[in-house]
């Protein structure tokens, strides 16, 4: 499968994301600048990385979500292409309306930069099938606005449709997210948004490789 990384001014995790995709798939992803109006047809996975697009002005991800390339991303989303948004990328997917809910300021108002534990709450998704159901993995987080909220109806639907893919585990919820939600899927299962940074835990130099499974799943890599 071929991956593409969307580039916007103010992102700062794009290089980490490109490095992770390159190391894991053996092939450098295509990069697509915000002013592009189409996505090459051979792209099977679109990744929106983390950072502070447009300085987080107005609302995190709000301005990025209105850039020309995002119309092309939305079209591909509808067509079933896999899309993954990490951190600011998750905020952008919410602002685009591709995922439900919103991310508010962290409950303790602090920027958090640390490692948390995640429970794989659904191991039967296109982004998590290399893990065991209920497996606890380590993953870094670094954000100021990761406090997931949604109305009761949305939360009930997410739960009922098993669309919460990752939950903060063992009391490590760093931001006050409702129901410890760290990552969710859209209804058709081709779009993942998550606050933690799996691209920063993919090799021994990072202190572990628990984040690899997300990329191996999303890229349909052959099992080692």
């Amino acid at each position: 499968m071929k991956a593409a990384v969307i580039l916007l001014p103010g992102l700062n995790r794009d290089r980490d994301m490109i490095a992770a995709l390159t190391k894991i798939s053996g092939r450098a992803p295509t990069t697509i600048w915000q002013t592009e109006t189409s996505i090459p047809s051979d792209i099977d996975l679109i990744v929106i990385p983390g950072g502070f697009s447009y300085g987080d002005y107005l609302r995190c991800g709000a301005i990025a979500a209105r850039m020309p390339v995002m119309r092309a991303v939305a079209e591909r989303a509808k067509a079933g292409t896999r899309i993954m948004g990490v951190c600011n990328g998750f905020q952008i997917l919410l602002e685009m309306g591709l995922l439900p809910g919103a991310l508010m300021r962290n409950a303790n108002l602090n920027f958090v930069c640390k490692e948390v534990e995640l429970e794989v709450a659904n191991a039967q998704t296109a982004f998590s099938n290399r893990y065991e159901q209920g497996q606890i993995i380590r993953c870094p987080v670094a954000h100021h606005d990761g406090n997931y909220c949604a109305d009761d109806e949305t939360l009930a639907r997410l739960k009922g449709e098993h669309r919460v893919v990752f939950r903060y585990a063992n009391g490590t919820n760093p931001n006050g997210s409702v129901n410890d939600i760290a990552g969710i899927l859209n209804a058709s299962g081709n779009i993942l948004g998550m606050m933690p940074h799996p691209e920063n835990l993919i090799e021994p130099a990072h202190g572990g490789d628990h984040g690899r499974g997300i990329f191996e799943s999303a890229l349909d890599l052959a099992l080692a």
């Binding site: 508010m104 300021r105 962290n106």
Partner: peptide, 10 residues
């Protein structure tokens, strides 16, 4: 109404 506002609380 009902949306948590951590900044307002602070």
């Amino acid at each position: 109404k009902g949306v948590l506002d951590p900044q307002g609380k602070a």
